[in-house]
Design a protein around this nucleic acid. Sequence first.
DNA 1: GTAACGCGTAAGCGGTAACTTACGGAGCAT
DNA 2: ATGCTCCGTAAGTTACCGCTTACGCGTTAC
Lengths: 103, 103
Amino acid sequence: MTADPWAALGDPTRRGILARVAARPSSVTDIAHGLPVSRPAVSQHLQVLLESGLVDVRPRGRQRIYAARPEGLAGLRAELDRFWSQALANFKHLAESNYREQP
Amino acid sequence: MTADPWAALGDPTRRGILARVAARPSSVTDIAHGLPVSRPAVSQHLQVLLESGLVDVRPRGRQRIYAARPEGLAGLRAELDRFWSQALANFKHLAESNYREQP
DNA sequence: GTAACGCGTAAGCGGTAACTTACGGAGCAT
DNA sequence: ATGCTCCGTAAGTTACCGCTTACGCGTTAC
Protein backbone atom coordinates (compact mmCIF):
# COMPACT_ATOMS: atom_id res chain seq x y z
CA MET A 1 0.00 0.00 0.00
CA THR A 2 3.04 2.18 0.24
CA ALA A 3 3.37 2.30 -3.53
CA ASP A 4 1.94 4.67 -6.13
CA PRO A 5 -1.08 3.09 -7.89
CA TRP A 6 -0.65 5.42 -10.88
CA ALA A 7 2.89 4.24 -11.35
CA ALA A 8 1.62 0.67 -11.05
CA LEU A 9 -0.81 1.28 -13.93
CA GLY A 10 1.96 2.86 -15.97
CA ASP A 11 3.24 -0.50 -17.18
CA PRO A 12 1.11 -2.09 -19.94
CA THR A 13 1.86 -5.63 -18.79
CA ARG A 14 0.62 -4.69 -15.34
CA ARG A 15 -2.56 -3.22 -16.79
CA GLY A 16 -3.12 -6.48 -18.66
CA ILE A 17 -2.73 -8.40 -15.43
CA LEU A 18 -5.15 -6.09 -13.66
CA ALA A 19 -7.66 -6.49 -16.47
CA ARG A 20 -7.32 -10.25 -16.14
CA VAL A 21 -7.92 -10.38 -12.39
CA ALA A 22 -10.67 -7.78 -12.66
CA ALA A 23 -12.53 -9.96 -15.13
CA ARG A 24 -11.96 -13.10 -13.08
CA PRO A 25 -9.79 -13.81 -10.01
CA SER A 26 -6.97 -16.08 -11.08
CA SER A 27 -3.82 -17.82 -9.96
CA VAL A 28 -0.34 -16.71 -10.92
CA THR A 29 0.36 -19.43 -13.47
CA ASP A 30 -3.04 -18.93 -15.06
CA ILE A 31 -2.25 -15.24 -15.46
CA ALA A 32 1.19 -16.00 -16.84
CA HIS A 33 -0.36 -18.16 -19.58
CA GLY A 34 -1.13 -15.91 -22.52
CA LEU A 35 1.36 -13.30 -21.40
CA PRO A 36 4.72 -12.94 -23.15
CA VAL A 37 6.62 -12.84 -19.86
CA SER A 38 7.77 -15.47 -17.40
CA ARG A 39 5.90 -16.48 -14.27
CA PRO A 40 8.31 -14.78 -11.83
CA ALA A 41 7.81 -11.55 -13.77
CA VAL A 42 4.06 -11.88 -13.25
CA SER A 43 4.66 -12.54 -9.57
CA GLN A 44 6.70 -9.36 -9.28
CA HIS A 45 4.04 -7.36 -11.09
CA LEU A 46 1.40 -8.75 -8.76
CA GLN A 47 3.41 -7.66 -5.76
CA VAL A 48 3.55 -4.13 -7.13
CA LEU A 49 -0.22 -4.17 -7.66
CA LEU A 50 -0.58 -5.55 -4.15
CA GLU A 51 1.53 -2.81 -2.54
CA SER A 52 -0.44 -0.16 -4.39
CA GLY A 53 -3.74 -1.52 -3.09
CA LEU A 54 -5.15 -2.45 -6.49
CA VAL A 55 -5.23 -6.19 -5.81
CA ASP A 56 -5.59 -8.60 -2.91
CA VAL A 57 -4.66 -12.26 -2.43
CA ARG A 58 -6.41 -15.27 -0.98
CA PRO A 59 -4.59 -18.59 -0.59
CA ARG A 60 -6.54 -21.49 -2.01
CA GLY A 61 -4.80 -24.80 -1.55
CA ARG A 62 -1.30 -24.48 -2.93
CA GLN A 63 -2.13 -21.58 -5.19
CA ARG A 64 -2.75 -17.91 -4.48
CA ILE A 65 -5.81 -16.33 -6.06
CA TYR A 66 -5.39 -12.66 -6.95
CA ALA A 67 -8.42 -10.38 -7.41
CA ALA A 68 -8.87 -6.70 -8.25
CA ARG A 69 -9.75 -4.49 -5.29
CA PRO A 70 -12.62 -2.02 -5.88
CA GLU A 71 -11.49 0.30 -3.07
CA GLY A 72 -8.10 0.72 -4.64
CA LEU A 73 -9.63 1.67 -7.96
CA ALA A 74 -12.13 4.07 -6.40
CA GLY A 75 -9.43 6.53 -5.39
CA LEU A 76 -8.02 6.66 -8.89
CA ARG A 77 -11.48 7.13 -10.29
CA ALA A 78 -12.10 10.09 -8.01
CA GLU A 79 -8.80 11.75 -8.82
CA LEU A 80 -9.24 11.24 -12.54
CA ASP A 81 -12.77 12.62 -12.37
CA ARG A 82 -11.48 15.80 -10.74
CA PHE A 83 -8.98 16.28 -13.55
CA TRP A 84 -11.65 15.61 -16.12
CA SER A 85 -14.30 17.96 -14.71
CA GLN A 86 -11.80 20.78 -14.31
CA ALA A 87 -10.49 20.27 -17.83
CA LEU A 88 -14.02 20.26 -19.19
CA ALA A 89 -14.89 23.46 -17.34
CA ASN A 90 -11.85 25.22 -18.76
CA PHE A 91 -12.63 23.88 -22.20
CA LYS A 92 -16.15 25.27 -22.10
CA HIS A 93 -14.91 28.57 -20.78
CA LEU A 94 -12.42 28.79 -23.62
CA ALA A 95 -15.09 27.96 -26.19
CA GLU A 96 -17.31 30.74 -24.86
CA SER A 97 -14.60 33.38 -24.90
CA ASN A 98 -13.70 32.38 -28.45
CA TYR A 99 -17.31 32.59 -29.50
CA ARG A 100 -17.64 36.08 -28.04
CA GLU A 101 -14.85 37.37 -30.26
CA GLN A 102 -16.38 36.04 -33.46
CA PRO A 103 -18.37 38.73 -35.43
CA MET B 1 -0.65 10.99 -29.51
CA THR B 2 1.44 7.95 -30.21
CA ALA B 3 2.32 7.63 -26.55
CA ASP B 4 0.66 5.75 -23.69
CA PRO B 5 -1.40 8.10 -21.49
CA TRP B 6 -1.22 5.67 -18.57
CA ALA B 7 2.54 5.72 -18.70
CA ALA B 8 2.36 9.50 -18.86
CA LEU B 9 0.35 9.60 -15.63
CA GLY B 10 2.80 7.22 -14.01
CA ASP B 11 5.20 10.00 -13.15
CA PRO B 12 4.11 12.08 -10.11
CA THR B 13 5.70 15.26 -11.44
CA ARG B 14 3.70 14.84 -14.63
CA ARG B 15 0.51 14.35 -12.63
CA GLY B 16 1.26 17.56 -10.79
CA ILE B 17 1.69 19.36 -14.07
CA LEU B 18 -1.58 17.93 -15.36
CA ALA B 19 -3.36 19.00 -12.18
CA ARG B 20 -1.95 22.49 -12.68
CA VAL B 21 -3.08 22.90 -16.28
CA ALA B 22 -6.41 21.22 -15.50
CA ALA B 23 -7.11 23.80 -12.82
CA ARG B 24 -5.97 26.67 -15.03
CA PRO B 25 -4.20 26.79 -18.43
CA SER B 26 -0.70 28.09 -17.88
CA SER B 27 2.60 28.86 -19.53
CA VAL B 28 5.70 26.74 -19.11
CA THR B 29 7.58 29.04 -16.76
CA ASP B 30 4.48 29.51 -14.63
CA ILE B 31 4.19 25.75 -14.31
CA ALA B 32 7.87 25.40 -13.51
CA HIS B 33 7.49 27.84 -10.58
CA GLY B 34 6.56 25.85 -7.50
CA LEU B 35 7.94 22.64 -8.94
CA PRO B 36 11.29 21.25 -7.75
CA VAL B 37 12.53 20.65 -11.30
CA SER B 38 14.03 22.89 -13.96
CA ARG B 39 12.06 24.50 -16.77
CA PRO B 40 13.42 22.23 -19.52
CA ALA B 41 12.30 19.25 -17.47
CA VAL B 42 8.79 20.70 -17.40
CA SER B 43 8.98 21.25 -21.14
CA GLN B 44 9.89 17.61 -21.69
CA HIS B 45 7.06 16.47 -19.42
CA LEU B 46 4.63 18.64 -21.35
CA GLN B 47 5.72 17.06 -24.60
CA VAL B 48 5.01 13.62 -23.18
CA LEU B 49 1.56 14.76 -22.05
CA LEU B 50 1.07 16.28 -25.50
CA GLU B 51 1.97 13.09 -27.34
CA SER B 52 -0.38 11.10 -25.14
CA GLY B 53 -3.28 13.42 -25.91
CA LEU B 54 -3.79 14.62 -22.36
CA VAL B 55 -2.88 18.25 -23.12
CA ASP B 56 -2.93 20.72 -25.98
CA VAL B 57 -1.03 23.95 -26.69
CA ARG B 58 -2.01 27.37 -27.90
CA PRO B 59 0.63 30.00 -28.66
CA ARG B 60 -0.13 33.33 -27.03
CA GLY B 61 2.41 35.96 -27.89
CA ARG B 62 5.84 34.62 -27.02
CA GLN B 63 4.54 32.04 -24.59
CA ARG B 64 2.76 28.74 -25.09
CA ILE B 65 -0.34 28.08 -23.02
CA TYR B 66 -0.88 24.44 -22.10
CA ALA B 67 -4.34 23.15 -21.12
CA ALA B 68 -5.75 19.77 -20.12
CA ARG B 69 -7.71 18.00 -22.86
CA PRO B 70 -11.05 16.49 -21.76
CA GLU B 71 -11.13 14.03 -24.65
CA GLY B 72 -7.80 12.56 -23.64
CA LEU B 73 -9.00 12.03 -20.09
CA ALA B 74 -12.32 10.53 -21.17
CA GLY B 75 -10.70 7.39 -22.53
CA LEU B 76 -8.84 6.77 -19.30
CA ARG B 77 -12.03 7.31 -17.35
CA ALA B 78 -13.86 4.73 -19.44
CA GLU B 79 -11.11 2.13 -19.12
CA LEU B 80 -10.79 2.68 -15.38
CA ASP B 81 -14.55 2.42 -14.97
CA ARG B 82 -14.54 -0.95 -16.70
CA PHE B 83 -11.88 -2.22 -14.32
CA TRP B 84 -13.82 -0.86 -11.36
CA SER B 85 -17.22 -2.27 -12.29
CA GLN B 86 -15.77 -5.70 -13.02
CA ALA B 87 -13.84 -5.70 -9.75
CA LEU B 88 -16.95 -4.65 -7.87
CA ALA B 89 -19.00 -7.40 -9.48
CA ASN B 90 -16.46 -10.03 -8.50
CA PHE B 91 -16.25 -8.59 -5.01
CA LYS B 92 -20.01 -8.86 -4.52
CA HIS B 93 -20.01 -12.35 -5.94
CA LEU B 94 -17.29 -13.37 -3.51
CA ALA B 95 -19.17 -11.84 -0.59
CA GLU B 96 -22.30 -13.80 -1.50
CA SER B 97 -20.51 -17.12 -1.77
CA ASN B 98 -18.85 -16.50 1.58
CA TYR B 99 -22.18 -15.62 3.15
CA ARG B 100 -23.74 -18.83 1.89
CA GLU B 101 -21.18 -20.90 3.78
CA GLN B 102 -21.81 -19.19 7.10
CA PRO B 103 -24.28 -21.11 9.41
C1' DG C 1 8.42 -40.75 2.63
C1' DT C 2 8.92 -38.97 -1.91
C1' DA C 3 7.80 -36.67 -5.89
C1' DA C 4 5.57 -32.95 -8.23
C1' DC C 5 3.17 -28.64 -8.27
C1' DG C 6 2.56 -23.59 -7.32
C1' DC C 7 4.67 -19.82 -5.78
C1' DG C 8 7.93 -16.16 -3.89
C1' DT C 9 12.52 -14.15 -3.88
C1' DA C 10 17.56 -13.18 -4.70
C1' DA C 11 20.98 -11.84 -8.03
C1' DG C 12 22.15 -9.72 -12.05
C1' DC C 13 21.75 -7.42 -16.48
C1' DG C 14 20.20 -4.29 -20.39
C1' DG C 15 17.39 -0.53 -21.47
C1' DT C 16 15.43 3.66 -20.71
C1' DA C 17 13.23 7.34 -18.14
C1' DA C 18 14.01 11.67 -15.67
C1' DC C 19 16.96 15.22 -14.85
C1' DT C 20 20.68 18.60 -15.54
C1' DT C 21 23.47 22.13 -18.21
C1' DA C 22 24.17 24.44 -22.49
C1' DC C 23 22.71 26.25 -26.65
C1' DG C 24 19.81 28.43 -30.38
C1' DG C 25 15.62 30.37 -32.22
C1' DA C 26 11.09 33.09 -32.30
C1' DG C 27 8.46 37.12 -30.41
C1' DC C 28 8.04 41.85 -28.25
C1' DA C 29 10.16 46.30 -26.65
C1' DT C 30 13.42 50.08 -26.66
C1' DA D 1 19.32 46.59 -34.87
C1' DT D 2 19.71 45.13 -29.96
C1' DG D 3 18.47 43.33 -25.93
C1' DC D 4 15.30 40.54 -23.13
C1' DT D 5 11.78 36.90 -22.52
C1' DC D 6 9.91 32.48 -23.24
C1' DC D 7 10.60 28.35 -24.99
C1' DG D 8 12.27 23.87 -27.35
C1' DT D 9 16.08 20.67 -28.16
C1' DA D 10 20.73 18.26 -27.95
C1' DA D 11 24.00 15.90 -25.19
C1' DG D 12 25.20 13.46 -21.24
C1' DT D 13 24.74 11.38 -16.65
C1' DT D 14 22.43 8.68 -13.09
C1' DA D 15 19.14 5.84 -11.19
C1' DC D 16 15.53 2.81 -11.58
C1' DC D 17 12.49 -0.60 -13.98
C1' DG D 18 11.30 -4.83 -16.09
C1' DC D 19 12.98 -9.14 -17.21
C1' DT D 20 15.39 -13.71 -16.87
C1' DT D 21 17.63 -17.56 -14.56
C1' DA D 22 18.28 -20.06 -10.37
C1' DC D 23 16.97 -21.47 -5.99
C1' DG D 24 14.11 -22.65 -1.79
C1' DC D 25 9.82 -23.20 0.78
C1' DG D 26 5.08 -24.86 1.65
C1' DT D 27 1.30 -27.79 -0.14
C1' DT D 28 -0.99 -31.66 -2.40
C1' DA D 29 -0.72 -36.39 -4.48
C1' DC D 30 1.07 -41.11 -4.94
